[in-house]
Design a protein around this nucleic acid. Sequence first.
DNA 1: GCGGGTAGTCAAAAAAAATTGACCTATTGT
DNA 2: ACAATAGGTCAATTTTTTTTGACTACCCGC
Lengths: 97, 97
Amino acid sequence: MEEKETCPAQRLLKILSGKWKAEIFRLAVESPLRFNNLLRQIQGSNKQSLATALKELEEEGLLEKTTIKLKPLHIEYSLTEKGKALIPVFRQLEGLS
Amino acid sequence: MEEKETCPAQRLLKILSGKWKAEIFRLAVESPLRFNNLLRQIQGSNKQSLATALKELEEEGLLEKTTIKLKPLHIEYSLTEKGKALIPVFRQLEGLS
DNA sequence: GCGGGTAGTCAAAAAAAATTGACCTATTGT
DNA sequence: ACAATAGGTCAATTTTTTTTGACTACCCGC
């Protein structure tokens, strides 16, 4: 059942809070991500959850997917400008924890 | 199953993202909250969810519960200092939406 | 043409979060 | 005394999220 947003921050908050999302975001700040790589780095995670998380972060415009056509032909996920704009938010949250 | 936090922001993010939490927080910024009042203000919500949300926000140290011993003897929930420290975070999130 | 790596999808099951309705106690207004 | 208001709790159910396992498809090296 779709509900209207009463609070503008809520959507973003919801998207960022899904399981593994914060972790994915943190790694994305360091360098572009690759799927199977993530799967190995984030212990306890699984394909499906990561795929869903990446898709949602992408749909929200925080990550962008690029096909790298060189060497071992792979896909990279990297922070968009909107994604980078969230870095200070994360830093503030971390400061409060 | 309890899991260890890999990301310090994650806990806070999770707590803030629960249903109605952002709305509760927003109202708390304006003025102290009262239970049955909230129940009327937030349409679509319910006692149990609000009770849980308030308890979690309180346990996280973002809200504090005060018994007002005057006039109609009631309880108020208001932002703690830690809670107030989150206001700019919300503003940033809203700016990005 | 086999094994390994990359990047996934799908359906089903399990776990966590949210909702419902009944119930409860204490205080207040009339 | 009675009903309403305030502030909840509890158990059961529903909904949403997360996990699991099986399966695809493409490319590369040998």
